[in-house]
Design a binder for these strands. Structure first.
Lengths: 193, 193
DNA sequence: TTAGATTGTTAGCACTAACTAACATTATGA
DNA sequence: TCATAATGTTAGTTAGTGCTAACAATCTAA
């Protein structure tokens, strides 16, 4: 992204995201954000009104979102392995793109109102996954079990993987891709009819 | 715990843990901590020297720890279901007792040096679990697979469950216990020889 | 070229925070 | 009972933070 072509609002929002992901919302001053964006502190307050409003508008502008329903409809093949792999990849793509915003709003309870916006995806995904598991059972392609419980299990596993990498030091050298492939095999074997 | 019998240092450390778990390290002033502990701010600085030293000593004093090796040695029954259930319960007990300290040091990168102390348990558990899976394969009680990858999978699932509950709003009404029971069944079926 | 928009600079307000000094008061243990 | 330790109170230092006002400078579009 060529900063030469960005207007000041964009520069300020991106600078805020970068610095706050690293140091936390309270650990960064508006002076630092303005300096990193290469504009004056006055410009920050003229464009956004307040520090919190800057973050709110940054979340609005840069929070990555996609239509999960459409993705499900267009890509589900009713094969447990292929489908879980697709869902897993979609999950980590969304979370990875949002990781800076995610860590900012997760780490500070004062941003709980902004954090509400980030709950959309997990809730939607839980519902889509639950419906998917129910349908797989109807098609006798999966053993009979509580679909929502399996959906939560899958999501917690992915969430644990994501959070492990978000907050620093890894405790193992095995790659995310390898672990996800292996755990999907676990689901496939464990849920075989 | 009867606060009437606590000395000032203990009162200050517990007040700091409670307030910082709720508002974050930077979101709490030494004035607030002292007030919550019922002592003067001067007393806080006389006993601890600095705000950060107060937290460091609180972690030292109140971080829950146990000998996982001993627990493994004394409780492993070489039955996958029973063993994973025991390990799961041990994990959540440790994490639950440390949850306030965990959320404090996790949320603020300025405390990364203190956070190092909290990595002990996950690393130790990863090793114990990997050894356990290797031994189960040797005993032909589990299918042949990469033990460390399975250990990481189990830990990420538990970590996802823990973090989901640590940072607020649940996305489902299904209890942790139910999900853990179900996911252990998944492991048992998925890893059956 | 010029009017209007936008930004930069300087100075400042109001307040908070971590922390310290000095003296008074209270608690504690010998 | 009393010396010492610990704490409370008052006042303060140093530094920083979010934010604003007023005026100068620069940019942009007509």
């Amino acid at each position: 992204m060529n900063t030469l072509t960005l207007d000041n609002k964009s520069k300020l929002m991106l600078a805020a995201i970068d610095l706050m992901a690293e140091k936390g919302y309270k650990g960064v001053s508006t002076k630092e954000i303005a300096a990193a964006a290469g504009v004056s502190e006055m410009t920050l307050f003229r464009n956004f009104g307040s520090k919190k409003s800057l973050l709110e508008q940054a979340v609005e502008r840069y929070h990555y979102s996609l239509e999960m329903e459409t993705l499900f409809e267009e890509n589900i093949k009713w094969d447990l392995r292929l489908d879980l792999l697709m869902i897993c990849q979609m999950y980590h793509e969304i979370m990875q793109r949002n990781r800076k915003l995610f860590i900012i709003v997760l780490s500070d309870n004062e941003l709980a109102d902004i954090r509400g916006k980030a709950d959309k995806h997990p809730r939607k995904l839980l519902k889509l996954l639950t419906d998917y598991f129910n349908e797989m059972q109807s098609k006798n392609k999966m053993l009979s079990t509580d679909a929502e419980t399996q959906a939560i299990t899958f999501m917690w596993l992915n969430y644990g993987a994501f959070i492990s990498q978000l907050f620093g030091a890894s405790i193992s050298n095995i790659s995310l891709q390898n672990v996800m492939n292996s755990s999907i095999e676990l689901f496939v074997r464990g849920l075989a009819p």
